[in-house]
């Protein structure tokens, strides 16, 4: 049943967000701390165990894959509701601070990734 996959995804999502909120509360922060990340870890773990015990049929899996595939359209919809007008009105302080941090972080990403050992063989397993 396709709904099993989607329900598994939903349960992981909710548990993750809940833990993130609780973690934020425990740390005294007014925000969710890594809820989505925790949900992702939960989904990866439950997939691993359900797969091993053979409880996850291909049809159930497609209930998750569908939402994963909808990711890009969702991002496009997200882009459509950014406050672009305010971003452009922010003036030089906002622009320079944003450009500066993006450039600096980009340099760091490039630097760290150049240190990555070249053991990445395209092992197209599975």
């Amino acid at each position: 049943m396709i709904i099993y996959g989607t329900a598994l995804l939903a349960v992981c999502h909710l548990l993750g967000i809940l833990s993130g909120d609780l973690l934020g509360h425990a740390l005294g922060v007014k925000s969710n701390v890594g809820g989505v990340g925790i949900a992702m870890l939960l989904l990866m773990t439950s997939r691993f165990y359900l797969h091993r015990s053979g409880w996850l049929s291909a049809t159930s899996e497609s209930g998750v894959h569908y939402w994963g595939a909808l990711y890009i359209p969702v991002v496009v919809a997200m882009a459509m509701q950014q406050n672009v007008v305010a971003a452009l009105r922010g003036g030089p302080v906002a622009l320079i601070a944003a450009v500066g941090s993006v450039v600096l972080c980009g340099l760091c990403v490039s630097f760290i990734n150049r240190m990555e050992p070249e053991i990445e063989q395209p092992t197209e397993g599975e």
């Binding site: 995804l9 939903a10 992981c12 999502h13 989505v36 949900a39 992702m40 894959h65 990711y71």
Partner: peptide, 11 residues
């Protein structure tokens, strides 16, 4: 929905 779809990609 954004978070739902992100979590789904963890699959």
């Amino acid at each position: 929905l954004r978070d739902f779809a992100i979590v789904a990609t963890a699959f």
